[in-house]
Nucleic acid binder design. Structure first.
Length: 761
DNA sequence: AACAACGGGCTTTTT
DNA sequence: GCCCGTTGTT
């Protein structure tokens, strides 16, 4: 059967267009990925060399899936030779290959967000600036947006408008921080995420031979999610496509939700200017959702002023209306939605994987997590702390990074005294001081004390030198030893493995297992690389790791679970049953997006994206009061609820199930009245009910308890360590100490004056 | 130098 | 309510 037969008319036209610039505007659920994959398959069928195709996707996972689908269409494994991946991962490799031309080591480090933030913080401190004014987050955002618009530190400083903005914001020194930040990154042989694109631009600008090479290599270029590219990405694509102009961009302006990280809808307009003879294809038939959902989504998005005219329609069945549920608190929201999922699953025989709970902010996942766990339903939370952001993983990876590139200061600071080897703050402060005096990296100083005198004890110097020797020996094996062997060797000889093995608390055991999992992952990586006839050293692995996202590494056991994620993370996915939760003013739309029309329109597009994830049913929920910053605050229903055309929604006025708090269940809800003033309900409902006695030797305000309340054998609870049993008591009065055994963390000796212990039954 | 307690800041969203 | 960095104690 011909693969073109499965396409509708406009899809087929887009797939069959081979040469010359083209743009595909694809409405939600209109088979965009299908067009992209089929088009690549078609190119291969028409004899285009697989090595000459560059395909830029939004996630690495999307790239992987697309390759598999292409193979299944054309047979064989031709897709292996296509350069396919995210902007960041594709150009990280190209940069690595050409790093010498930019003065970077080929093993350059990729700083993640935490690394850059930490460096910015250090600089702010060293400059003697106020951290409350120069908040690392804000400064980082400023630097990031400069880089995404290809503004160098020098042109930043010279740009009166930008510097003026900073001065207005009372942060006139940002240009200095940017300058120092760029210098220190370079000195450390490190690039941050934005550098991967920025430096690619520098490379293509300053090295015509390199530009020429890649222009010739990539004769066919495809860009997915074009509406979410920034200026820096736009320019890379434009330069690479300048000779052959075989460029195909695919996107949907209605789904542009990343302007906060520099994405620019103007790129779509620029495209029309850059390639006046481009061909435009519109995909308007939605195959995903019921007509109620499609029409509801249309009724939302038409309120936006900025958009390309299109008419998304579907021939699918009407389906049920969009349910709107009102709950009293966020905890009730968790229970009600969870019960609803359980019901649908029972009644319709749906799978767990058919459900998604989508929210605006990661912090909202908590209440759902709790109720899902209570009902014992399997779920997976995407986002939040990913595997590679866990402390123990970052620690071990920091060793790998140091071995590859000892100038990597963020990695060095992380592990020079972990596991503990007696290199304390005092010693490191002296080292840092010397490094700044000579304007060299920390590594330069600690690897050559003769040249850079540091005023610390010879004992400390000795310990540091031992550490340096260890790292050097790792470094020597970096490009020769098999990745897994070296990684395993480092995990053991660094002492990390032992340190975690000795920690018998459940958390410690998990950490130990995580390390084992990382090592297993490295093994798998090596095997995969061998299949591709590539060596697969540890430094190759590092590039992969830095750019992986949570969605990229899915495990088998995660397959049939309920999905919890932010709406941003849900982009490109689809689920039979979708729950969009927390539809309240100041949460969704976010408080911080209410200052301008463009920001509000982006929130509205976000809502549009959320709605269009749903295939069969879509349910919205909001609460009357919600815990935020640890306090119960009243909330108002989101304006977005009213913006959905009335004919597609069904307001469920009942709050389902019995609510947990006593004071709440006694409450009679007025007919259809969005009464405020529930803030008064605060406290009471959330406190633990168990009677507890405060144990304290210092006479407290209430004049309560004395130490003799505590006896050996008592069960107590500690804020951090949880429940435990007192095994010994030493001393009297304010000096009294208690030895307590905590099943979760082991034995601890606590000074009662400080430790907050409560006696439990 | 290491550990434990405390206080401040924070919530958009991510490669 | 949680995380992180700082402060204070041994």
């Amino acid at each position: 059967m011909d693969y073109l037969d499965g396409l509708n008319e406009s899809q087929r036209q887009a797939v069959e267009h081979i040469d010359g610039p083209m743009m595909v505007i694809a409405g939600a659920g209109s088979g965009k990925t299908r067009v992209l994959t089929y088009r690549i398959a078609h190119l291969l069928r028409q004899g285009v060399d697989s090595f000459s195709i560059l395909s830029l996707t939004f996630t690495n996972k999307a790239a992987k899936e697309m390759k598999e689908r292409i193979n299944s269409i054309v047979g064989g494994n031709e897709s292996m030779n296509i350069t396919m991946g995210t902007f960041h991962s594709v150009f990280a490799r190209i940069l690595r290959y050409n790093s010498d031309k930019l003065g970077y080591p080929s093993n350059f480090t990729i700083y993640d967000t935490q690394d850059s933030r930490s460096l910015i913080k250090t600089i702010v401190k060293e400059f003697g600036l106020d951290e409350k004014i120069y908040k690392p987050n804000a400064v980082q955002g400023r630097i990031s947006s400069a880089k995404n618009n290809l503004i160098s530190p020098a042109s930043y400083e010279a740009n009166a408008e930008i510097v003026g903005e900073d001065r207005m914001a009372k942060k006139p020194e940002i240009f200095r921080i940017y300058k120092e930040y760029a210098k220190r990154c370079f000195q450390a042989g490190a690039m941050d995420f934005d550098d991967l694109l920025y430096q690619t631009n520098v490379l293509l600008r300053d090295h015509p031979d390199v530009l020429h090479l890649y222009q010739q290599k990539f004769k066919y270029i495809l860009v997915d999610e074009y509406q979410d590219t920034n200026y820096s990405q736009y320019l890379i694509v434009k330069k690479l496509a300048a000779v052959y102009e075989n460029i195909c961009v695919v996107g949907d302006d209605a789904q542009s939700i990343y302007s906060f990280r520099g994405a620019n809808i103007e790129n779509i307009l620029n495209f029309k200017k850059d390639y006046p003879d481009f061909k435009m294809f519109k995909l308007e038939q939605n195959y995903r959702s019921t007509s109620n959902i499609v029409n509801a989504a249309n009724s939302i998005i038409k309120r936006n002023k900025d958009q390309i005219q299109k008419d998304v329609w579907t021939s699918n069945t009407e389906g049920g209306k969009i349910n709107i549920i009102r709950c009293l608190t966020d905890n009730e929201e968790g229970r009600v939605i969870t019960n609803r999922i359980f019901d649908i699953k029972q009644n319709e025989g749906a799978d767990y994987k058919d459900f998604a709970i989508l929210y605006r902010t990661n912090a909202q996942s908590r209440s759902f997590e709790e109720s899902l766990r209570k009902l014992n339903l399997p779920y997976k939370i995407y986002g939040g702390l990913s595997f590679y952001q866990r402390k123990e993983i970052k620690d071990l990876i920091a060793y790998f990074r140091l071995a590859a590139n000892p100038k990597d200061e963020e990695a060095l600071k992380r592990v020079i005294n972990y596991p503990k080897r007696g290199i304390g703050k005092t010693s490191m402060d002296s080292v840092i001081l010397t490094a700044r005096q000579y304007d060299v990296s920390l590594w330069d100083v600690i690897s050559d004390f003769n040249r850079y005198p540091v005023s610390i004890s010879s004992g400390a110097k000795n310990k540091i030198t031992q550490f340096v020797t260890k790292i050097q020996s790792y470094g020597a094996q970096m490009d020769s030893a098999p990745a897994y062997d070296l990684a395993n060797n480092i995990a053991q000889s660094s002492g990390i493995l032992k340190d975690l093995y000795d920690d018998k608390s459940p958390e410690g055991v998990t950490r130990y297992e995580n390390i084992q999992e990382l090592l297993a992952g490295i093994k798998e990586f090596s095997v995969q690389q061998e299949e591709k006839d590539e060596q697969g050293t540890l430094s190759d692995f590092l590039i992969d790791v830095a750019l992986l996202t949570d969605a990229d590494q899915e495990k088998e056991e995660d397959k049939n679970t309920i999905t919890l994620m932010t709406i941003h993370a849900s982009k490109g996915l689809e689920f039979p049953h979708v729950f969009i939760v927390g539809l309240e003013e100041n949460l969704f739309p976010s408080q911080l997006s209410l200052t301008s029309r463009t920001e509000l329109e982006e929130e509205r597009r976000l809502f549009y994206v959320a709605l269009t994830r749903a295939e069969k049913t879509c349910t919205l929920s909001y609460v009357v009061s919600r815990y935020r910053w640890g306090q119960l605050v009243t909330a108002e229903p989101s304006r977005f609820i009213d913006e959905v055309d009335k004919s597609f929604v069904n307001h469920e006025n009942e709050t389902r199930g019995r609510s947990g708090g006593r004071s709440l269940s006694g409450y009679q809800r007025p007919a259809d009245d969005r009464t405020r003033g529930f803030g008064a309900l605060g406290g009471g409902t959330k406190r633990k009910l168990k009677p507890m006695n405060q144990v304290s030797s210092t006479p407290s305000k209430s004049g309560g308890g004395t130490t003799d309340e505590l006896k050996v054998g008592y069960n107590v609870e500690h804020d951090r360590f949880g429940k435990g049993k007192v095994t010994a008591l030493v001393g009297k009065g304010s000096d009294q100490k208690a030895t307590v055994f905590f099943p979760r963390v082991g034995q601890k000796t606590l000074i009662l004056k400080f430790a907050k212990l409560t006696v439990v039954e």
